[in-house]
Amino acid sequence: MLFDDLYIRAVRLKPHTDGDLGYTAAIPAIRCLKRLELKSPVTFFVGENGSGKSTLLEAIAVAFGFNPEGGTQNFHFSTSETHSPLYRFLTLEKGIHRPKDGFFLRAESFYNVASEVDRLEEVDMGLLRSYGGKSLHSQSHGESFLSLSLNRFGGNGLYLLDEPEAALSPQNQLALLSRIHQLVGLKSQFIIATHSPILMACPNAEIYSISDDGIVPTEYEQTEHYQLTKAFLENPQRMLRYLLDETD
């Protein structure tokens, strides 16, 4: 996909007061946000817990029209109104094409999405075929995540994934990485919040590191996730000695 083909090309924060943004006004990366340009079909948001990466991804998803708890743009269920007001103050600069498919995947509320799919199957028999032919609840957490990407994601789509590695083994993270690459070839765009150094190795992906210093483009090998994982795997005993000595 070329820049003009991306479904979302940039994200801008509208003029606002801190009160408008609720609790997100206290997140340094959100306060620093002015205009965030997306240049690749695959964009990763990476950072520590609480850095704001999932909050930003959620706001982008809701601003685009996805259900806050996840699913497609046709999902309208709600079990708990916990999403931030940030989406009201985001402007999404869109490309010239509209996606024909889309999905917002949230690891923390995927159970609710699976329940909604089962409910809709009772109303529209045959819906489950697009999810692999059986209830997502009848599969393990990891199996259902992978089944979703293999069966429900059809291409020409916008897919926003919040920590999809949460339920996946390293082998299945590799399978998801392969599927992402395949779907990019089918004119898809991904925006992913992740901690996984496996996923963020996706070829030609753009990585934004989100921290108290703001939102900064970062090379894969410069991410803390890559460096810590590499240091541990190269010499786990040295790392363990350091950690245990520090905590004794």
Rank of each mutant, 00 (worst) to 15 (best):
G47A: 10
L86F: 07
L146C: 10
L168P: 09
F104C: 04
L233R: 13
F232D: 02
L2M: 12
N235Y: 04
T24R: 06
V46G: 01
E206A: 12
S140Q: 13
L176Q: 05
D213F: 11
S54M: 01
S149T: 13
V216N: 05
I180K: 03
D162H: 00
F64D: 07
A63W: 05
G19D: 14
L92A: 03
L36Q: 11
R88E: 15
D212E: 15
N74S: 14
G52F: 04
S40I: 00
E224H: 12
L150I: 09
L228Q: 12
T17W: 09
T223I: 02
M239N: 03
G95H: 04
V216Q: 06
P41F: 03
R31T: 04
F75P: 04
F3T: 12
V123T: 15
G19K: 13
N156Y: 03
R119Q: 08
K14N: 07
K134S: 14
F75H: 10
S54L: 00
S144P: 08
E93D: 15
I191L: 15
R152G: 09
G126A: 08
R12D: 13
F190K: 02
L186C: 09
D20A: 11
S144D: 09
Y23N: 03
D5R: 00
E246A: 14
P217H: 08
V46K: 00
F153C: 15
Q189N: 04
L228D: 10
Y111P: 02
A10L: 07
I210A: 02
V46I: 10
D248R: 12
E206P: 04
I192W: 01
Y208C: 01
L6C: 01
S211T: 10
L2F: 11
Q222P: 01
T247S: 03
E221C: 10
S147Q: 08
L90D: 06
S130M: 07
L56H: 02
P68E: 05
H83P: 03
A10F: 05
S40G: 02
P197C: 02
Q73E: 11
Y226V: 13
V46R: 00
N74C: 06
Y208T: 03
E246Q: 12
D101L: 03
F3H: 14
N49Y: 09
S51P: 07
G70K: 07
P170T: 09
S138M: 12
G132I: 07
F103S: 11
L244I: 14
D5H: 04
A201S: 15
